[in-house]
Design a protein around this nucleic acid. Structure first.
Lengths: 198, 198
DNA sequence: GCTCTTCTAGGTAGATCGCTCTAGCAGGCT
DNA sequence: AGCCTGCTAGAGCGATCTACCTAGAAGAGC
């Protein structure tokens, strides 16, 4: 049986998928409506601002979904260090399963629009800020001070994003796993881990 | 007085500049010949393989140039740790000077082509491998063992690449500076630094 | 039943895409 | 000179891009 997903949501989902693989400029609106099984007119009905509005909403929606994934993995782990470990391992597994296609949902777009569209650049900045805020919250809750938590979070996400680039290019999870080990070691050193010394 | 730079080199340079800011799909060939002050016919004379051949050569040329920059900075520093510090500081300075446009010369393209063009993906992989090999060489020369050197190098470049994404999106050098501090600390800890303890 | 709003449906415009084509120019060779 | 090669020069091809347009279907409220 078929559940009727609203056209607007189908467009958002399809665009998100296409953005990961082909980026912003590489994704055509024809391609979007084809993937979403939606008529072309509906696109401009739901997103009168055109491609830029669609892009902005997709960036924020994808960012929110990835944030929820992060929170879920962290919630399911006994302590922040174990959570980070699981998060990186999950990322590596996803990379392999999707033939190195699904990594960060907004990284490609973020680099593309950073110097071409101020509105979209702001959307990506907001997403990254929300991730950093969420990570910082986790570490402060584990007893670290604000500055240290923020620093640790930024190091973690920069490591992850950079590792995604190298891993997708070289088709190897080595970089992601190393970045994960690095983040785990830094977090444990800072005192965010369980009391056991490995 | 005008120095006659060969058309082929002008095209390569102009394409490299455009790739940094607009990415692969975002850069049109008309735009390239306009920026290079070259006629359209010359482009297909020098690059009969079209956009993909041009892209491949630009990726490799840009990667080689960035590698040379890395070697230069490292050569100018008393030890690898100081070199890393200078490299990250230089990257942060360049970001600010270019209004957060010039970061990694191939990162945007690497993410764009990772799942769309096998030939170009291989070119980006070769570039990253060359950087990793160069960094590994530096650390082994400083006395570290092979595995440790490679790990340190990958952590450094993943940190740099990821920090570039966050920094360009948020228009702040915070991520790059943090990633630099992280790389410096890791290298010093591993024993690649000068003998002084900061 | 009737109207009004919301959404679907797709045709069409105008610009731009990557690419191919032919013509012409400059300089070294025999 | 005559020829040949390497390169410049740009018009123009079919395809695709984003964006806009009008027409009709679906459903709520009166």
């Amino acid at each position: 049986m078929w559940v009727p997903v609203p056209t607007r949501d189908r467009i958002l989902d399809a665009t998100g998928q296409l953005f990961r693989r082909h980026g912003y400029t590489g994704t055509g609106l024809k391609q979007v409506v084809a993937a979403a099984h939606a008529p072309f007119g509906s696109l401009y009905h739901h997103f009168p601002g055109g491609k830029e509005q669609l892009g902005g909403e997709v960036i924020r929606a994808s960012g929110r979904m990835y944030l929820e994934l992060f929170e879920m993995v962290m919630d399911a782990s006994p302590d922040p260090v174990a959570g980070i470990e699981a998060f990186f391992e999950g990322a590596a597994a996803t990379l392999e399963e999707t033939d190195y296609a699904d990594a960060c949902p907004i990284a490609t777009v973020a680099l593309e629009v950073a110097s071409t569209s101020e509105a979209l650049r702001e959307a990506t900045a907001e997403v990254f800020d929300s991730w950093i805020a969420a990570g910082t919250r986790r570490f402060t809750a584990a007893g670290l001070n604000e500055a240290c938590s923020r620093q640790l979070t930024i190091e973690m996400f920069t490591g992850l994003e950079g590792a995604f680039i190298l891993s997708r290019a070289t088709r190897s999870t080595e970089a992601v796993l190393l970045a994960g080990a690095r983040a785990v070691a830094s977090a444990r050193e800072a005192g965010a881990g369980g009391s056991d010394v490995r």
